[in-house]
């Protein structure tokens, strides 16, 4: 079973991965975006870690709801409301339980991913974080490691895609050949799940 500590570790591990990969995320965001994805997420997850420490939420749902709120208010770019909605809706779906099973987490994440799709209007194949999150959630039923591998594969599969959402979509065919920064950071979030589980 996964308790509030597991979810705190998930957020801390995400913050550490985002820190480590911030330059790469920003570099990916340079040719097809506005070159701020790494620094925006770094600011957001640093604030998430700080607020979790300060407010010490004690259920899985409240950890994610608080983290989501924090991302919406601190990121400053489109990834703020998108990741914020993902975590907040996932947190709400987990309810007040003090412990949840990996299956319940997978189910709740599916609700979160659906909310992101509604918010941003992206479909699989549009070259967005959805291309990482959908296969990752599907694989989560097997293991965190399987989800991590599916996420990485999903992110890499965005390279030949043409962007249909966000600033990159203005580039049309010129967006082809670049891995999507949002899909790449989403893979970090999924990888951090495995790290939190210590698998």
């Amino acid at each position: 079973m996964l308790d509030a500590d597991f979810f705190r570790r998930w957020m801390t591990a995400t913050a550490a991965l985002v820190d480590r990969e911030a330059d790469r995320l920003t570099a990916l965001d340079s040719p097809i975006g506005d070159a701020d994805h790494g620094s925006n997420l770094q600011r957001g997850f640093t604030a998430v870690t700080a607020t979790l420490e300060k407010e010490a939420p004690d259920t899985p749902g409240s950890v994610l709801t608080l983290a989501g709120r924090q991302l919406i208010s601190t990121v400053g770019g489109a990834s703020g409301p998108l990741y914020g909605t993902l975590l907040r809706r996932t947190g709400k779906a987990l309810g007040d339980a003090t412990e949840v099973s990996p299956e319940q987490l997978a189910e709740a994440l599916r609700t979160g991913v659906d909310a992101v799709r509604t918010l941003g209007g992206a479909q699989p194949g549009d070259k967005t974080m959805i291309d990482t999150l959908v296969p990752a959630v599907d694989a989560l039923g097997d293991s965190f490691a399987a989800a991590r591998a599916a996420a990485k594969e999903g992110a890499e599969a965005t390279t030949p895609m043409q962007a249909r959402k966000g600033r990159a979509s203005y580039l049309g065919e010129r967006s082809i050949g670049h891995q999507d920064p949002g899909a790449t950071s989403a893979a970090l979030l999924v990888a951090a799940l495995e790290e939190a589980a210590g698998e």
């Binding site: 709120r69 919406i72 400053g76 770019g77 489109a78 990834s79 703020g80 409301p81 998108l82 914020g84 909605t85 907040r88 909310a115 918010l119 941003g120 966000g166 600033r167």
Partner: peptide, 14 residues
């Protein structure tokens, strides 16, 4: 555009 739209939508959903 972009994050302006998404931020307002996310706040409304809140």
């Amino acid at each position: 555009l972009g994050s302006a739209v998404l931020t307002v939508k996310a706040l409304l959903a809140e």
